[in-house]
Amino acid sequence: MGRMITIKALKYNPNSKVSRAHFAEYQLEETDGMTLFVALSKIREELDHDLSFDFVCRAGICGSCGMMVNGTPKLACRTLTRDYENGVIQLMPMPAFKLIKDLSVNTGEWMEGMSKRVESWVHTNEVPDFTKLEKPIDPQVAEDTFELDRCVECGICVAACGTKLMRPDFVGAVGLNRVARFRMDPHDNRTDEDFYELIGDDDGIFGCMSLLACEDNCPKHLPLQSKIAYMRRKLVALR
């Protein structure tokens, strides 16, 4: 028999006139290797059918389940309950995103906006003939591009960001990383001047205060600090 743990989850439905924000408390038995995905699924099945949260892959791949775990933004599916010694875990929805209900926030809308803002796609006038051999790419460059392409848009860097608190329209590390990714990609013909037009202001690359909670909390361990610093040097040199 495992120990009993306590999960406190914020409950609030902004769409309801009668709903009041409060913490609901659930006691359950910890099982071997229990993650917050397992714990919350159990709570919904057995203790509170009404608790809302978002999981999709439950394997740390899709980025759906970002939430505040004892005050720190984390992917809930990869968070093990045994790592909390006193057995009390407080869950809150991530700040910075629109609350849907309880632990569920609208990252999708925010990320689509970010994608449009940094024009998160390959810019080129070439239409390659797909019956012919592909364009060769330096293997190291492909690997470096992949490294930055690993972002899963979980929103943790935005929820953790100090700059975002001061500047509500800050594009976030996720947006800056996306620019760095396309800047690396040889298929994309944009120049630094083009990127300056997208992020060359205080809501973009020059807004970042380098507090670095983004990199500290990034579940994919992206090199956000060095990429943001590098791009800032490149873009500041343009004006």
Partner: peptide
């Protein structure tokens, strides 16, 4: 083969031969 080559043009960073 056409699909994969088109995706390369759309930015999928396929692992390349060294």
């Amino acid at each position: 083969p056409k699909a994969i080559r088109q995706l390369a043009g759309w930015g999928v960073p396929w692992t390349r031969i060294t």
